[in-house]
Amino acid sequence: MEIEEVYSSRQLDEKEGRQINELIDRSQQPIPDPDRWLEEELERNILLTSVDAILNWARRSSLWTVVAFPACCAFEFITTEASRFDLSRFGMEIIRASPRQADLMITAGTLTWKMAPQIKRIYDQMAEPKWVIAMGACAVSGGIFASSYSVVPGYNRIIPVDVYVPGCPPRPEALIYGIRMLQEKIARQSLIAEDK
């Protein structure tokens, strides 16, 4: 990776604006949701399904969330994590500050185009396998800011989203339901399906 020497703040702004405009041009179409394995009938046998079952159990029981909460739905997430709703029951005790140690991104809140490259970068740096929950109306479709020039209309323009949780903001029960849905989705994943 080349490191450019940027000295004046004007140059910095121009460079950043150029990059963000390119990103907007590139991400006009939403990225399709990763759900191929839910539809297709796989050639399964007893050995494969047992390995799949254990792997998927391990993966869905320890979903660690990365800290990437751009806006206000984060408070609902904090409530969900705190003692009353107690997200730790689902194996989500730890919220990782490092994307290298996380495998779930709960995108809580409005995303502006200026913030979009950072979210993309954090998603890229997360370890495989990784999942994304789009939390709140802004994350699903842009919400009330959908017609704004500066807001990303839905996170699926930037990163592939697994589960959508609507609401402005969604209540902690809704988020927990979305997490349960994601766990059911992971439970049906297969080693073969990942390969295609």
Binding site: R121, E128, D195
Partner: peptide, 11 residues
């Protein structure tokens, strides 16, 4: 194949 291998420059 138990551990997926999908590198990218950011990672």
């Amino acid at each position: 194949q138990v551990v997926p291998y999908k590198p990218n420059p950011a990672k």
